[in-house]
Write a protein that binds this DNA or RNA. Structure first.
Length: 285
DNA sequence: AATGGTTCCTGGACGC
DNA sequence: TGCGTCCAGGAACCAT
């Protein structure tokens, strides 16, 4: 399940292998993958050259020479795979886009939560004035908050926004309009490191405690990125989300009933907002 | 506006 | 062995 580190690994791969390439024929093999697309994808992609890559949180995009942007959601199981023409035989192949160097940019997605959409560019809501070149983001990214690994991220403003929420802290951490890039796994890990239970109300936490949670999230994601960043080779941009998580040891996620790695008591799993949360009843208050 | 629950989807894991 | 059921979750969506 791609969270920020996994998406950044994909972006770096696309930066190396797709920028400068021009799209040709585009084959859409599953309608759901282009469900938000107005018109036909090929009409917007064909003959467009990729000029840059971008990312905010888990939202990934390619800048096109037409001025529009190809917004890519990896969803739960999306993979971007650069191969020689026609090499992907998987029945999870959803889009095959031909590039002018003889390669294909393939989108594979088992659970079809992911999608491609070509949208207009808008001025970046977070861009600071005075930049030499106007910064833009896809129109579909307008509502997404900055992520903790963004050099321009305003941590103090983020803390104040979180403090103003009465929802459970886990829910607030997963709200991409408050802070982006954090998914279920890193949310659980960050809350463990910070010693805060997932159902504590954000408004009931001190600003210092919220700061510790955000620091923990940034730390766990940057360490995952260091590992995941070396997981693809020069031939493929191949990220299935597994590389970032499962090669590293998780403290609580997926460890229900196993001993806490710090204090030894049993890790608990609770369910709310339709998903699992794992925590240590002794280390987290 | 904020809040909290539901929904989409597929295949692996599990129980009988 | 095989079938049915549950579970995983990113983010849009909806009702309140």
């Amino acid at each position: 399940m791609p969270e920020l580190p996994e998406v950044e690994v994909v972006r770096r791969g696309l930066e190396d292998h797709v920028v400068g390439r021009t799209f040709g024929a585009v084959e859409v093999l599953h309608p759901r993958t282009v469900r938000s697309q107005q018109g036909h994808l090929v009409d917007f992609l064909g003959d467009a050259t990729v000029t840059a890559t971008g990312r905010r949180g888990k939202f990934l995009w390619l800048d096109l020479s037409t001025g529009k942007k190809l917004h890519v959601h990896l969803g739960m199981s999306g993979q971007m795979l650069v191969t020689e023409r026609g090499q992907v035989k998987s029945n999870h192949l959803r889009i095959r886009a031909e590039l002018d160097d003889g390669a294909d940019l393939n989108f594979l997605d088992q659970r079809t939560f992911g999608q491609w959409t070509v949208v207009d560019a808008i001025p970046d809501p977070f861009a600071s004035g005075g930049a030499p070149v106007a910064q833009t983001v896809p129109q579909t990214v307008a509502h997404i908050a900055q992520d903790p690994l963004d050099p321009a991220w305003e941590k103090e403003a983020c803390i104040r926004k979180m403090k103003g929420r009465r929802s459970e802290i886990k829910r607030v951490l997963l709200d991409q309009t408050v802070v982006s890039g954090i998914g279920n796994i890193y949310a659980d890990e960050a809350l463990f490191v910070a010693g805060v239970r997932p159902r504590r109300r954000a408004s009931a936490l001190s600003q210092a405690a919220i700061g510790r949670i955000l620091d923990a999230a940034a730390d766990v994601m940057s360490r995952a990125l260091e590992q995941g960043g070396t997981s693809f080779d020069s031939l493929y941009v191949n990220v299935n989300g597994a590389s970032g998580y499962f090669s590293r040891s998780l403290m609580v996620y997926g460890r229900e009933s196993q001993p806490c790695l710090v204090c030894g008591i049993s890790i608990k799993r609770i369910t709310f907002m339709g998903r699992s949360s794992h925590y240590c009843p002794r280390c987290q208050l």
